[in-house]
Simulated scan of single mutants.
Amino acid sequence: MDNWAKLLTAVAAVLSAVAWPLALFLTALLFRDALRSAIERIPSMLDRVKTASIAGVQVELERVADAEKKDKAGKVTPNQKEVAARIMVEKNDLGSQPLLKELDRLCLEFDRLRRNLPSGDIRTRAMTRIVVQMRSLSPSLLEFLDTYKGSGSQGSRLAAVAMMQMVPASADPEWLERRFTSDPPFIFYHAALALQNAVDSTDVSEKKKRGIREAVRRALEIVKSFNDTPDYSTIEVLESIIS
């Protein structure tokens, strides 16, 4: 009798072990076409989610640019830092490539504005709008800083400046100093802001700050020596660093 009980218990255990796998197998067999279709749709569903996320980033960039459009000084604001932090979270799902494409689009847009619009307030406001959006992307793409620093495009070099503005510890004083001899006033004004942010940052060593102040003194001499009217906004920023 005990043997029969043990046998029945063993059989029940076996049936219990195979029941769920068998049920799943039969379900998959019966609904294989529907399952195959659902699996095939997964990549396109993920693409739609990613597209929606990219659209969300673009909306964030437009909003921050709209919010800062009255700020003629064009300095980094807490709002820009908040948007940059949100985009860094989005990067976890999107990866770097969609954000790089967006930054490259802004670089090309800057170059286009420089070519096609005459110098004046309208062009300056349009270019400031671009640099505000670049800043919001910059912390997420800091690993590509050297690529943008080495570019022949003014827009790409502006993107590198924006990265240094947002992450002062990444500031390269010698490279920023060269902006005052090889780039237009809009870019070297923002180079001055990057140098100012680095001097004000607690993340930058005192040794590096001393080197920055030396670079600022040389940059100030360059700007004041221009034959045409010097850029007084840049002079004001540079003088505030060494005062």
Score class of each variant (00 low, 15 high):
Gly150Ala: 01
Arg179Glu: 12
Ala19Leu: 14
Trp175Glu: 01
Leu106His: 05
Met45Thr: 11
Arg115Phe: 10
Gln97Asp: 04
Arg179Ser: 15
Arg218Pro: 03
Ser182Thr: 15
Ile242Gly: 02
Leu15Phe: 06
Phe25Ser: 13
Gly155Ile: 00
Glu221Tyr: 09
Met134Val: 01
Ala52Pro: 10
Lys209Met: 04
Met45Val: 14
Lys207His: 15
Asp111Ala: 07
Glu177Ala: 13
Gly155Lys: 08
Val132Lys: 04
Asp33Lys: 15
Ser205Val: 08
Arg125Cys: 03
Glu40Pro: 02
Pro139Tyr: 05
Thr202Arg: 15
Ala19Phe: 14
Thr147Lys: 13
Glu102Cys: 02
Lys50Trp: 02
Glu102Asp: 10
Ala219Arg: 02
Val11Ile: 08
Ser16Tyr: 12
Met164Ser: 04
Arg125Pro: 05
Leu26Trp: 12
Asn79Glu: 13
Val161Ile: 11
Ala169Ile: 12
Leu7Ala: 14
Phe25Ile: 08
Ser44Val: 12
Ala65Leu: 06
Thr77Met: 04
Gln196His: 14
Lys50Glu: 13
Arg63Pro: 10
Ser37Met: 12
Ala28Gln: 13
Val57Gln: 02
Lys208Val: 03
Ala85Asn: 10
Val204Asp: 04
Ala12Tyr: 08
Pro230Trp: 00
Glu174Gly: 11
Leu158Ser: 00
Leu15Ser: 11
Lys69Asp: 13
Ala126His: 07
Ala67Met: 07
Ser233Ile: 03
Asn79His: 07
Pro118Cys: 04
Glu236Val: 01
Asp2Glu: 15
Thr9Val: 11
Thr229Trp: 00
Val59Pro: 04
Lys70Val: 10
Glu236Pro: 00
Ser156Gln: 12
Thr77Gln: 08
Glu177Ser: 11
Gly95Tyr: 02
Ser53Leu: 14
Val223Ile: 09
Ser151Ile: 03
Lys208Gly: 01
Ala192Met: 05
Lys75Val: 14
Ile222Leu: 08
Gly120Ile: 06
Gly74Phe: 01
Arg86Trp: 11
Ala160Gly: 06
Pro168Trp: 04
Arg32Tyr: 12
Met164His: 08
Glu239Trp: 07
Met164Asn: 00
Pro185Ser: 04
Phe180Ala: 01
Leu7Pro: 09
Glu40Trp: 08
Asp33Val: 13
Val14Thr: 02
Lys224Asn: 03
Val204Gly: 01
Arg218Ala: 07
Ala84Tyr: 05
Ile222Thr: 03
Asp203Leu: 15
Ala159His: 11
Lys50Leu: 11
Ala23Met: 10
Leu238His: 00
Ala85Gly: 10
Lys91Asp: 00
Thr51Gln: 13
Leu99Phe: 06
Ala160Pro: 12
Leu106Gly: 07
Leu113Phe: 06
Leu100Glu: 10
Lys208Tyr: 01
Asp2Ile: 09
Ser37Asn: 10
Asp93Tyr: 08
Lys81Asn: 12
Lys149His: 03
Val14Asp: 06
Val11Met: 07
Val59His: 14
Pro173Trp: 08
Trp175Ala: 04
Leu30Gln: 08
Arg210Ala: 10
Arg218Lys: 15
Ser44Leu: 11
Leu137Arg: 05
Arg218Leu: 05
Glu40Ser: 15
Val64Glu: 01
Ser182Gly: 07
Ser240Pro: 07
Ala23Ile: 06
Thr181Tyr: 09
Met88Ser: 14
Met1Lys: 14
Val49Trp: 01
Val83Asp: 05
Glu239Ser: 05
Lys81Asp: 05
Ala160Met: 07
Glu109Gly: 09
Asn116Pro: 08
Ser182Ile: 11
Thr234Arg: 07
Thr181Ile: 09
Arg129Met: 06
Ala198Glu: 10
Gln97Phe: 08
Leu15Tyr: 06
